[in-house]
Simulated scan of single mutants.
Amino acid sequence: MNWKFSTKKPENQPKKSKAREWFDAILFAVVVSTIFRGLLFSAYAIPSGSMERSLLVGDYLFVSKISYGARMPFTPIAVPFLESTLTTDSVKTYWDGVKLPYFRLPGLSEVKKGDVVVFNKPEEVDKPIDVRTLLIKRCQATPGDKLTIMNGQVFINGKASPNAAAAQTSYLVTTDGRDINPDIFQDLHIEIRQQMAANVFEMIIPTENLSILKSYSNVKSVVPVYQPKGEFDLQVFPHNARFKWNEDNFGPLVLPKKGMTIALNDSTMILYKRAIEFYENNKVAQKGNAVFINGKLAKSYTFKQNYYWMMGDNRHNSLDSRFWGYVPEDHIIGKAMITWMSVDSSASLINKIRWDRIGRLIR
């Protein structure tokens, strides 16, 4: 038997117009890019200096969603590729009339200590989770960990946690009265936070450049700046004088873990009420020493999801978990993988692109 195949189109099939061909091509591109962006990778721009010098303002990153598993949308009806609000918060690009429960596809791994993670800002409880502001920080503690910060050094379960290779913090710099060449600050990526006296400055200095600054003859001393232990900072989580914590001396604090049960008392309610109420969607009321959850008297509570602790590598120029607390698992978007572009907005036109950062893996 002979088989004959024909590639000719039926003569009576109408030919597509140019406009229809363009529409089909654009529709296909939108569908493919939406799937790619929603399930595999998305792009992210660094807007602030909280991760310097690990990441720089103007870096553009690829964020892997398959690393932890792609999170499905909570608000499926939204204008694609646009921010959640335009111009002012009153102009929304989404409709929250339809809300879906949290669901995440299987991932290649779990969030690990040291990962650079993109997530939604937990503070913005008045918005659906997936339209909250995007943040990028380094994971310092994972569910069940006991976190302590002593003089700026993070300890996890009693052991000092490795600092990022390009981490930086504040130092008190005292000179002999002679000026430091301003070009040095630019070359060494040093930021002057404040001047306390004619020859005393607080500076944010990258670790790798610390010894170079100390070597200059007009620099008398360079010592780390820390808030003393026991000095209460109201801006720091949990914003309660019972816990006299600050950004440099903090904890100990145990990160909630799915299935972990805590007794409910004055102290645990200060530390965990926000998670129980806002992140796990319960109605919480306190009457004297009694705690009511969803209208029922409760002596204990079992967490429904995992929580993480995220901090910027630029420790004294970062609003992070030290200020707003835990990052719930359902807020996590993906793992920052690679810098695909880097633009220095303050440089001249010919030097705007930081070529040495393109294609750099994020560690």
Results as ranks from 00 to 15, higher is better:
A160T: 08
R37D: 13
N120S: 06
A336K: 00
K257T: 11
A263D: 14
A347L: 01
S50A: 12
R193P: 00
I332C: 09
K283L: 07
K220N: 09
F201H: 03
D59N: 08
A198N: 11
Y44T: 05
G152W: 00
G97L: 02
S345D: 06
A167G: 10
K137I: 02
R138M: 00
Q153K: 05
G259I: 12
D183R: 14
K137D: 04
Q168C: 06
L134W: 04
Q168P: 02
P238V: 09
P80T: 06
A45Y: 11
A347M: 00
Q286T: 15
P256C: 11
W355C: 05
M72L: 15
D266Y: 10
Y301C: 03
M337R: 11
L264K: 07
R71H: 07
F278L: 15
S211A: 15
T207P: 03
A45R: 15
S345Q: 11
N199H: 09
A198K: 10
Y226Q: 08
V284P: 05
E247I: 10
Q186H: 15
P76K: 14
S17A: 01
I204D: 01
P256D: 03
A165V: 11
D89K: 13
F23M: 03
G144H: 00
Y216F: 13
G49Q: 13
R354T: 01
W309T: 14
P182S: 10
M311A: 11
F23Y: 04
L271G: 06
T87M: 13
G49V: 11
D248G: 03
I270L: 11
D59R: 06
Q195M: 08
G251Q: 05
S342Y: 04
Q140R: 14
I332P: 04
P76D: 10
Q168Y: 01
S170C: 07
V32F: 09
I204V: 09
N281R: 14
F103K: 14
